[in-house]
């Protein structure tokens, strides 16, 4: 399942509790349509960081996800890398105006697939909003099939970018408009630099 793999990584109860709150709020808050009702707007107000509670909560979640992304980069256990990356991207899009600027006026549909098809994740950007779902998109701009989480991580984030070699070795197989992949890799690396400053 999408969130199952990372539960054990949130060791401290406070962190776990924060995450659970985040898990209930963020997916709703990040969906523009879901957020259109009064309840959604309330959540969005908090999750969007426009209140003291929202800011504290979101910053804490972002810090936790950032820490987890660091773990993914430093350890060999990279299977949950994509989930951590996408959650971090979502939340940073929401609370960080300079990062959000990257996806303003940007519309794109990404499909991520693990080669064994155990992971089927769709990412949709729509003018400053980012939505992540476990589903298959009918007409993505690009589909990225990867052999392992480690391969995907190396493809996107290693210090010496390995895009071409990964494709040549068939560890990662892109299909569709590669320009969207370059854009996504830029977003991922920007996030990486925010989490692990040079």
């Amino acid at each position: 399942m999408w969130s199952g793999s990372q539960i054990n990584v949130w060791q401290k109860p406070a962190q776990w509790a924060t995450l659970k709150v985040a898990e209930s709020i963020i997916p709703v808050a990040l969906e523009r349509k879901s957020a259109s009702g009064p309840f959604g707007r309330t959540l969005l107000t908090h999750a969007g960081g426009s209140t003291w509670l929202g800011k504290v909560m979101l910053e804490q979640i972002r810090a936790l996800l950032g820490s987890r992304l660091r773990d993914c980069l430093e350890s060999e256990a990279a299977e949950e890398f994509l989930e951590v990356l996408l959650r971090l991207m979502q939340i940073t899009t929401l609370i960080n105006p300079s990062f959000r600027e990257n996806v303003t006026n940007f519309s794109a549909r990404y499909q991520f697939l693990s080669r064994d098809r155990r992971l089927t994740v769709a990412v949709i950007f729509d003018d400053g909003w980012m939505c992540v779902r476990e589903t298959t998109l009918p007409d993505p701009d690009i589909t990225l099939t990867f052999s392992t989480g480690r391969a995907l991580l190396q493809f996107l984030l290693t210090p010496n970018p390995d895009l071409l070699a990964s494709v040549l070795r068939h560890e990662v197989e892109p299909e569709g408009n590669l320009n969207y992949l370059y854009k996504f890799a830029y977003l991922a690396r920007r996030l990486q630099s925010m989490v692990i400053p040079a």
């Binding site: 010496n160 970018p161 895009l163 590669l178 320009n179 370059y182 854009k183 890799a185 830029y186 991922a188 690396r189 920007r190 630099s193």
Partner: peptide
């Protein structure tokens, strides 16, 4: 040119 996109923040300092 768009292949440079992932490297916009790092191309100035990359090793190679």
């Amino acid at each position: 040119a768009l292949t440079l996109w992932p490297e916009l923040d790092t191309v100035s300092e990359r090793t190679n």
